[in-house]
């Protein structure tokens, strides 16, 4: 009698992959904070952090240690369970998005088993990413409301309406990509780009819209109104301290990392190496996996750099400008892009 029929091998493989990706997300998020300060210093002609370790590379550890040992304050009038739930939700939704991204070419073992470098290649693919992003609003709203502080609440409502507004043009820009691939599976989106060239060639406008929306979804400058510390009295995490604040800040960096990965996968060929036919090299599958993974990481690092670069280049928008851009400019542009793509595809098919 089998009580449970489970493929333990599959579970082991997937959990290794999941823990690997979560570890990687944390590592990259840590070093993005370091890179942020170094890039800021470079753009402003300073040196940046250089005390902890050579070139200050242990700075993120020092920052993390500081956050951990700070005093933890939960305001008396706050709603305690929800106050704790807020940062937890922000972190969970940030980490969940990585499930459908294909990280590298599949690895084939000596026994002939194919191990996909993707946690789940579900039929829904990119739509799943969207559903998780749309749930990401709750981390901000719950945190801001539970603090029982009117500035936090106002910042939370600002942040939530910003995220809800920018999801629409993001989705519309994405539909044009889906027209071209005819599938929502991430692996097929990458496969289509390897065969027919990267989507950025066919969808430059779509990519720009998607990128602007990704900036807004991650609450990065020029759209970082939810956490505008100078003019709007800080953000939804005003009452948070210690590692709860750390969770909110960390979730933002993980969101940056994952959205860079999504952009690289949707528009820049994923793990595809440009201009060469890597299949003709005759490398064994282990090295192919390693190389394709590092190519994807290189693309992600480039996007992360652009995120940081924009922060020190473009000033913050005013709130009405932000809403105008989202609803009156990006949505019509995305619709136009969608209609043109559909028309061209129909014409070419005839």
């Amino acid at each position: 009698m089998h009580l449970l029929v489970i493929d333990w091998w599959l579970i082991l493989e997937k959990s290794l992959l999941i823990f690997g990706i979560i570890g990687l997300s944390f590592f990259i998020a840590m070093y993005t904070t370091y890179a942020e300060r170094k890039v800021a210093a470079w753009l402003q002609d300073r040196r940046g952090p250089n005390r902890a370790g050579p070139f200050g590379i242990f700075q993120p550890l020092a920052d993390g240690g500081k956050l951990f040992f700070k005093e933890e304050i939960i305001p008396l009038a706050s709603n305690k369970p929800l106050f704790i739930l807020g940062p937890a939700l922000a972190m969970i939704t940030a980490l969940l998005t990585s499930t459908v991204i294909p990280w590298a070419t599949p690895f084939i073992t000596k026994g002939g088993d194919v191990i996909a470098m993707q946690v789940a290649d579900v039929d829904m693919g990119i739509l799943l990413v969207f559903s998780i992003v749309s749930v990401g609003v709750y981390g901000i709203m719950i945190g801001g409301w539970a603090s029982n502080n009117k500035f936090s609440l106002m910042a939370a409502i600002r942040g939530a309406s910003q995220m809800v507004s920018y999801e629409l043009p993001m989705g519309l820009a994405l539909i044009a990509v889906l027209f071209m691939t005819g599938s929502l599976k991430m692996s097929e989106i990458v496969g289509n780009q390897i065969e027919n060239g990267w989507h950025i060639i066919y969808q430059p406008l779509g990519f720009i819209i998607f990128f602007v929306c990704a900036l807004a979804e991650c609450n990065r400058t020029p759209f970082d109104l939810p956490e505008a510390e100078n003019e709007l009295n800080f953000g939804y995490h005003q009452e948070y301290s210690s590692m709860k604040l750390g969770f909110y800040l960390f979730a933002e960096y993980i969101n940056m990392f994952i959205s860079s990965a999504v952009m690289a996968t949707l528009y820049f060929g994923g793990y595809d190496i440009p201009f060469v036919n890597e299949a003709s090299w005759g490398l064994n599958s282990f090295w192919m996996t390693v190389i394709s993974f590092s190519v994807l990481m290189a693309k992600i690092s480039f996007f992360l750099f652009v995120f940081l670069w924009i922060r020190w280049t473009i000033p913050r928008f005013r709130y009405d400008q932000l809403m105008n851009l989202g609803w009156k400019k990006l949505i019509p542009l995305a619709l136009l892009n969608m209609i043109i793509t559909a028309a061209v595809i129909l014409l070419l098919k005839k």
Binding site: S131, S134, V135, M141, E167
Partner: peptide, 15 residues
């Protein structure tokens, strides 16, 4: 429907 349920109900209506 699972994904649409999350996007429409959890992501839009409940917000």
């Amino acid at each position: 429907l699972a994904v649409v349920n999350i996007i429409v109900y959890a992501g839009a209506i409940m917000v």
